[in-house]
């Protein structure tokens, strides 16, 4: 069984050492997914697998047989932008742009988790529904490093879009 990447079937690599990240970047030339540390410490390689955010650098591609992978390239068609992508521009939620695809994919996965009711480290009460306060968003996005310091803009962009949808 192949892997589905942005809806297209992709053959598994012959070498089981190939990470999902390297399959995307080197095998498929989908270089929107970024390699920042290759050791699970920065979040730049975040992609969505069946809607869940994961780190593609720590994922061996062979483990994802039959799964559906969505990368930054799969979030929008042609020249169009996902509302969160547009919000990142509007709020200046990036500078160099290198961590940005990972931040965006992570935020989409984050919103799905919150919708499902997954609590976080800063949730005062584990038994109640999730309210995506600024602090909650910050904690939930802490797996995505940004060295340029666009943190405020990133959180603002998420608040205005995917987090706002959840509150509505």
């Amino acid at each position: 069984m192949p892997i589905l990447v942005n809806g297209s079937a992709v053959a598994l690599p012959n070498d089981p050492r190939v990470s999902l990240l390297d399959l995307l970047r080197e095998g498929l030339h989908l270089s929107g997914t970024k390699k920042g540390c290759n050791q699970g410490a920065c979040g730049a390689c975040t992609v969505l697998v069946d809607g869940e955010r994961i780190l593609s650098c720590l994922a061996l591609a062979v483990q994802y047989e039959g799964r559906s992978v969505t990368t930054i390239e799969g979030l929008s068609d042609g020249d169009g932008l996902h509302p969160l992508q547009q919000a990142f521009i509007d709020h200046d939620g990036f500078q160099c742009g290198y961590c940005t695809p990972g931040q965006i994919c992570s935020a989409i996965g984050m919103a799905a988790e919150a919708k499902r009711g997954v609590p976080s480290h800063v949730s005062a009460d584990l038994s109640t529904d999730v309210r995506l306060t600024r602090e909650e968003l910050q904690e939930r996005m802490s797996g995505n490093l940004c060295r340029c310091g666009a943190h405020n803009g990133i959180i603002d962009a998420i608040r205005d879009t995917v987090a706002a949808e959840l509150a509505a």
């Binding site: 270089s31 929107g32 970024k34 990368t71 979030l75 992508q85 521009i89 990036f94």
Partner: peptide, 11 residues
């Protein structure tokens, strides 16, 4: 901006 949020800026 659009290039960067789409992952289309080539590094």
């Amino acid at each position: 901006g659009a290039l960067k949020v789409k992952g289309a800026a080539r590094f």
